[in-house]
Design a protein around this nucleic acid. Structure first.
Lengths: 201, 201
DNA sequence: GTCTATACGGCGATAGAC
DNA sequence: GTCTATCGCCGTATAGAC
C-alpha cells in the first residue's frame, strides 16, 4: 500500500489480491483494472495479456522459494536428509501460496502449448542430479531398485495434490484455513516416512 | 454413429469427442453445435449450461466405474488385496477417461459452491468403512499406526495427480498417449508397494 | 512513454416467435 | 422442439491525446 505506487505496481497489487482470492478464470481484467483504478488497456500495455500478467505474479510469489527448491535437489546432501528438506521446504512454500497448485494446473489445461513458458514448471520438474543420486544409491544396494522418474512423481504427488483438492478436504472435514494448514503440516513427516519406507531394500 | 440420432444424442456425441480431445475450457458451445449440426441454443434447451452438459457426459463416462470403486472400498476384502484392487481399478478408469481429473479440479476451482453437486466427488471421497478397517488392523498391531484420512489422501494423490499434470509428463519425456499409459500402468505396482511398505509396523 | 476512449470479435446464455 | 435475434460479458487491439 505505498503512497506513490506506479501503474504497474497498482495492477500487480490488485491482480494478486484477486487471483489469490478467486483464482485465474473467475478474475476478469476489467475487475483488476477497476480495483487498481486504471484504464483497462493499461493491463495490455504493461503486460501483454492476462496470462502473462498471471505468470509475472506467480514468478514474483514463488521466485525465490522455487529456486531454493532446485538448490536442495541439486545439493550434495545425503539422500534421506535431502528428501526431508525438500518436502519440508516445498510444503512451507505451498502453505504460503495455497492457490499456486491450482493456478499451475489451470494454466496447464488452459493452454498446454505454453507449458514451457512457465518458470514454475521448470522448478517443478528438474531432477537430473537427484536421479543420478537415486541410481547411485540403488546400484550400491543401499536402497531398493527405483525408477527416479516415478519416485519423484510420487514425491510431487504426495506434496502437491492435497492443495489441488483443498476445498474438497476443507468441506469434508469442516476445516477452516488454519486447520487445513495443521493437517498439511502433519503430512511433512507422513510423506517422508512413506517415501523412505518405499526405498528400503 | 446411429442413423436416427436424436438431438440430445447428437449433442452428447459431438461434445464428448471435443471435450476428450481439447478439454473443457478450449471447447466452445458454438463448436459443439456446429459439429452436431444443430442450433446453438438447443444445447441450452436440453442441458441447462455447458457445465451441466459436461457433467452429464462425465457421469455417462464414469458412472459405473465410480460406483464399482466405492464397492471395493466398502467390501470385506483383506486390506492388502483391497488396496491393490482399488489402485488397479481406479487407474484403469482414469486411463479410459484421462481428462476426468483435470475436469474435476477445474470445476473445484471454477465454482467451489457446486462441489457437492458433482457425483464424482462423492465417489472420490467416501472412506468410512475403509477407515474402520485401517483402524482395526492398526489396533491389532498388524500395521503401523496410521491416520486413515492421511492414508487415503496419499493413495488418491499417488493415483490421480499424474493425470493432472499429464501434459507436463508427456512434454518432459516426449511421450505420446500410448507411452503415457504405459508409464501409468507401471505405477499400479509402484503405488501398491509404496503404500504397503508405509503400513509395515 | 503513459494514458484514455472506444471498438472488435468471441463467448455462454436467453426470450420469444414459429 | 427448433430457430432467430440479441444480451451482457469477456480478453484484446488500436487510434490518438497528453
Amino acid at each position: 500500500m505505498s503512497e506513490k505506487a506506479s501503474t504497474q505496481e497498482k495492477i500487480i497489487e490488485s491482480a494478486t489480491e484477486l487471483f489469490l482470492e478467486k483464482g485465474f478464470h473467475r478474475t476478469s481484467v476489467r475487475e483488476i483494472a477497476s480495483r487498481a483504478k486504471i484504464n483497462i488497456s493499461l493491463m495490455n500495455y504493461y503486460f501483454r495479456s492476462k496470462e502473462m500478467l498471471f505468470e509475472t505474479i506467480i514468478n514474483l510469489l514463488i521466485g525465490d522459494p522455487s529456486s531454493s527448491l532446485k538448490t536442495i535437489l541439486d545439493s550434495d546432501l545425503e539422500l534421506n536428509e535431502k528428501i526431508k528438506q525438500y518436502i519440508c521446504r516445498y510444503i512451507d512454500m505451498l502453505i504460503s501460496n495455497p492457490l499456486l497448485v491450482s493456478f499451475v494446473l489451470a494454466v496447464l489445461n488452459h493452454s498446454p502449448d505454453k507449458i514451457t513458458k512457465l518458470k514454475v514448471t521448470d522448478s517443478l520438474y528438474t531432477t537430473e542430479k537427484f536421479a543420478n543420486q537415486l541410481n547411485a544409491e540403488s546400484s550400491k544396494g543401499n536402497i531398493r531398485k527405483t525408477d527416479p522418474e516415478q519416485f519423484y512423481l510420487n514425491m510431487l504427488s504426495l506434496i502437491a495434490f492435497p492443495f489441488a483438492i483443498k476445498s474438497l478436504i476443507n468441506e469434508k472435514n469442516a476445516y477452516n484455513g488454519i486447520e487445513f494448514s495443521k493437517f498439511i503440516e502433519l503430512r511433512k513427516e507422513i510423506i517422508y516416512n512413506t517415501l523412505i519406507s518405499s526405498l528400503k531394500p
